[in-house]
């Protein structure tokens, strides 16, 4: 029995203690122990043990080239745009080499590499410190595909995860974001004030068999795939190129790799 069905049964098992709830229990669990309703992954959903991303930074020369990639994400996920920098929400954004990799401040770095723009986003770490910190499991590492995801319904807004993230990947809704969304995407929810948010590796697109919005918009510069499938394109790139990750020494095992 899978875990979602188990939680359903647990939930109604408790209420079913009262006889009044019996018909309800039957509707959820089915008569004679046979399942009456169940939940599945969509047939076209993309599956992986651990999603990972390889960003070929050599393919970007100026921040303008990153603009459409970031914009694709912002649009897909209803990211607001605030005048006040304190309230900023960022899922994927552009930064400089020494900000992305502050622990690798090589001197006299190749000018070309140093001046390139770098994309940063949630690393969907294999050992995510944010999930360790969260007191309600509102942010958690999804067992099915390793995405570090948020349950916005459960987040109490304590911001412990923001302190725990060594990559500055998390944003907090300091106010209601809805009035500040330039163009509302009606197929995706917004967030409410008082919760933390961050990149979700486009879990909603993967479920429909689509690659993440940034990958799609990158024209091949960003590759997405299963880290544990030796045949995946991600693994192929990792085999063939020297890659680095942000703050590898912290042991969080980031799943976003950079070819520099």
């Amino acid at each position: 029995m899978d875990s979602s069905r188990r939680s359903v049964l647990k939930f109604f098992g408790l209420t079913a203690l009262g006889l009044a709830a019996k018909p309800v229990f039957n509707a959820f669990a089915g008569e004679h122990g046979k399942s009456a309703m169940h939940f599945e992954k969509g047939a076209e959903a993309l599956k992986a043990k651990q999603w990972a991303m390889v960003i070929d930074t050599r393919k970007f020369e100026s921040p303008d080239e990153l603009e459409p990639i970031i914009e694709a994400c912002n649009k897909a996920h209803n990211i607001p745009r605030f005048e006040n920098k304190n309230h900023e929400i960022k899922w994927i954004w552009e930064t400089e080499y020494h900000n992305a990799f502050p622990q690798m401040p090589n001197r006299f770095l190749s000018e070309e590499a140093e001046q390139r723009p770098y994309l940063v986003l949630c690393n969907h770490c294999e050992n995510p410190p944010c999930c360790r910190a969260c007191p309600t499991q509102a942010t958690f590492k999804r067992e099915s595909d390793g995405i570090v995801i948020m349950d916005f319904h459960r987040c109490i807004g304590c911001r412990f995860c923001m302190a725990a993230c060594p990559f500055g990947s998390r944003s907090f809704n300091f106010r209601d974001p809805r009035p500040f969304i330039p163009e509302l995407n009606h197929d995706y929810p917004t967030r409410m004030k008082g919760v933390v948010e961050k990149c979700n590796f486009c879990a909603e697109r993967l479920a429909k068999g689509l690659e993440p919005a940034c990958v799609e918009a990158s024209g091949g510069a960003i590759v997405f795939g299963d880290l544990y499938d030796p045949e995946s394109e991600v693994r192929k790139l990792l085999r063939e190129n020297y890659t680095i990750r942000r703050k590898q020494s912290l042991g969080t095992e980031p799943c976003v790799y950079y070819i520099v």
């Binding site: 007191p135 499991q137 987040c155 907090f172 004030k193």
Partner: peptide, 29 residues
């Protein structure tokens, strides 16, 4: 101070509704 710092104070009981021993904040409460 903890309560006034929360973004969603109405949900504070989630800390005990979903007890999470690997969170230091849970132990702090």
């Amino acid at each position: 101070f903890i309560i006034v710092d929360l973004g969603q104070p109405m949900r504070i009981l989630n800390v005990w509704l979903y007890p999470t021993p690997h969170s230091v904040l849970f132990w702090d409460t």
